[in-house]
């Protein structure tokens, strides 16, 4: 597993050179944006069930056959597995966001996910839709563009607009999962 810092180290090591001023510029930006990154992570961790459960519910609402007999979320045992998976994917996205690098998401979540779902007969289109809803909800909460109440207390509270870049980064991690399943 890598983070933004160890990613730079691995790439410098392949050249056998120490990390100098040029490479440090990007890392200094990562450090300077640390509070925003932490706020963005808090936006996820304070709204886990809201993001994950609502996404699964949204997926079912758009396709009510899922919870009918014969549907993929019937009986509740399978619905529960679906809710669990939503949370797991969200959890790995939160790790990747905190690390500033997708390797933890790739290694521990995405790798083999599609094969597992195909083997278990999970409908990929529906799974992708649930992840899309999680992405939309996460970005809205982070940037404080959701309708209704403010959804998280961060270090820079009231600074949702400042989380714009980090929110795009979070969206890219959800897209990574979506692409892997497509």
């Amino acid at each position: 597993m890598l983070d933004a810092f160890s990613r730079a180290v691995v790439s410098a090591d392949s050249k056998g050179a120490p990390i100098g001023t040029a490479d440090l510029t990007a890392l200094r930006k990562y450090v300077a944006d640390a509070n925003k990154r932490i706020d963005a992570t808090l936006a996820i961790t304070q709204n886990v069930s809201c993001i994950a459960a609502d996404a699964i519910s949204g997926m079912v609402c758009e396709n009510t056959g899922l919870t009918q007999p014969g549907g993929h979320c019937y009986p509740t045992r399978r619905m529960a597995a679906c809710l669990r998976d939503g949370e797991i994917i969200l959890r790995y996205v939160s790790y990747a966001l905190l690390a500033g690098d997708p390797s933890v998401l790739d290694d521990r979540c995405i790798n083999g996910l599609k094969e597992t779902y195909l083997a278990l007969g999970v409908p990929l289109a529906n799974a992708i839709r649930a992840i899309e809803i999680m992405k939309i909800a996460t970005v809205a909460i982070m940037t404080e563009t959701n309708t209704g109440r403010k959804m998280f207390e961060g270090i820079n509270s009231g600074s949702g607009a400042q989380c714009q870049d980090i929110a795009s980064e979070a969206a890219s991690y959800f897209d990574r999962v979506i692409n892997a399943l497509s």
């Binding site: 597993m1 890598l2 810092f5 160890s6 640390a34 959890r91 905190l98 500033g100």
Partner: peptide
């Protein structure tokens, strides 16, 4: 690769939890 951040994430992942406040404070 062990670093301040990956150590925190590894232990959070080992117990299957989201990063807690104390995890985030140690990263901070």
């Amino acid at each position: 690769m062990k670093s301040a951040v990956t150590t925190v994430i590894s232990s959070a992942d080992a117990s299957g939890r989201f990063p807690t406040i104390s995890d985030i404070e140690s990263v901070k």
